[in-house]
Amino acid sequence: MKIAKLILFTLFGLMFINAGLDKFLHYMPVPELEPEVMKVGEAFGSILWLLPLVGAVELIAGLLFLFPKTRLLGALLIFPVMVGIMLHNAVYMPEGLVIAGVFFLINLWVLYENKEKINGLFA
Rank of each mutant, 00 (worst) to 15 (best):
P31S: 05
P29R: 12
P29G: 12
E32D: 11
L33S: 11
M38C: 07
L53Q: 09
P52M: 04
E58N: 05
A43W: 07
A43L: 11
P29W: 09
G41Q: 00
S46K: 03
L53F: 15
E58R: 06
P35T: 08
F44V: 06
A56F: 11
G41M: 06
V57H: 02
A43H: 07
P29A: 14
V40N: 06
E34Y: 06
G41S: 03
W49G: 06
V40M: 08
E32H: 08
S46H: 08
V54A: 01
L33F: 09
P29Q: 10
V40T: 02
L53K: 10
G55N: 00
L51C: 04
S46E: 04
E34F: 08
M38I: 15
P52H: 00
V40L: 13
V37D: 05
G55R: 02
L48E: 14
P52R: 00
L51S: 01
P35Y: 03
A43I: 09
L51I: 10
P31I: 06
W49Q: 07
E42Q: 11
A43T: 14
V30F: 09
G55Q: 01
P29T: 14
L33M: 10
E36Y: 12
E42D: 13
E42F: 10
L53D: 10
V40C: 03
P35A: 05
A56W: 05
G55P: 05
V54I: 13
V40Q: 12
V30L: 02
W49L: 06
W49E: 03
G41W: 00
V40F: 01
V57S: 02
V37F: 03
V57E: 01
P52S: 04
L48A: 11
E34I: 07
G41I: 00
L53N: 03
K39M: 13
E58P: 02
P29Y: 13
E34G: 13
G55Y: 08
A43E: 01
V30S: 08
V54L: 10
F44M: 06
E58K: 02
P29F: 07
M38R: 07
P29E: 14
F44D: 04
A43K: 01
V37H: 09
G45I: 07
P52N: 02
L33Q: 10
E42G: 05
V30K: 14
K39H: 06
E32S: 12
L50R: 01
M38D: 04
W49I: 03
A56E: 01
E36I: 15
L51Y: 12
V37C: 01
K39P: 05
S46Y: 01
P31W: 04
W49Y: 15
L48R: 14
I47N: 08
L51H: 02
M38T: 14
G41A: 05
L53W: 12
L48P: 08
E32G: 05
L53T: 15
V54D: 00
M38Q: 03
L48Q: 10
L33N: 11
L48K: 14
G45V: 11
G45Y: 08
P31G: 01
G45T: 12
E42A: 13
P52E: 00
L53I: 15
A56L: 12
E34A: 13
E58M: 10
E58G: 02
V30D: 06
E34P: 12
V57T: 13
G41K: 07
E42L: 13
V37P: 01
E42Y: 12
P35V: 13
E42V: 12
L53R: 15
